[in-house]
Simulated assay, not measured.
Amino acid sequence: MKPVVSVGQAWICIVISVFGIVILSVIGALFKANHHSMVGSTDDPADGAVVAGTAFSAVIVYVVFLVGCGFQALLHMRESRRGAIALS
């Protein structure tokens, strides 16, 4: 199977996905715990669990991106080991 995206795009997608997973997981955990920094103001959402569910849904999307981009990077690594000529 041949990669669809370039190697640089695959690795950038991996890095962004990892950061997205970490950041959204922390934000979701804070909302789920009804931490005062997230739900303590009058302008903040009243139900932190609903917001946490949305954040964790976004984490699942980032995990799918991570798997897809990781597969693309793996295809690039496999292709480079076979001695394929890369056209820039």
Rank of each mutant, 00 (worst) to 15 (best):
V39N: 01
W11S: 05
D44F: 05
L74V: 09
A29F: 11
L75P: 01
D43M: 07
I21S: 03
S57Q: 10
T42P: 08
G70R: 00
G83M: 09
I21N: 05
I16R: 06
V5S: 05
S37M: 08
M77Y: 10
P45L: 06
V39K: 01
V4G: 04
W11N: 10
R82G: 15
V22Y: 08
G83S: 08
V22S: 02
A29P: 00
Q9C: 07
I23V: 10
I60F: 14
L66K: 05
G53V: 07
F65K: 01
I60K: 06
Q9L: 14
S57K: 07
V64Q: 07
A55D: 05
F65N: 03
A73C: 02
T42V: 15
I12Q: 11
I16W: 07
F56M: 01
N34S: 12
H35F: 12
W11G: 01
L75I: 13
M77I: 12
F65V: 08
S6K: 06
S25C: 03
V63K: 03
G83V: 05
S6A: 05
N34C: 06
I16N: 08
V50Y: 14
E79M: 07
A84T: 12
G83K: 07
V15Q: 15
E79H: 02
F56A: 00
L24F: 12
V4N: 14
G48W: 05
D44T: 15
G40V: 11
V39D: 01
S17H: 00
S41M: 14
A46F: 09
P3E: 09
P3R: 06
F65E: 02
K32E: 14
A86G: 02
C69T: 04
G68K: 02
A58Q: 07
G53M: 05
F56L: 05
F71Q: 15
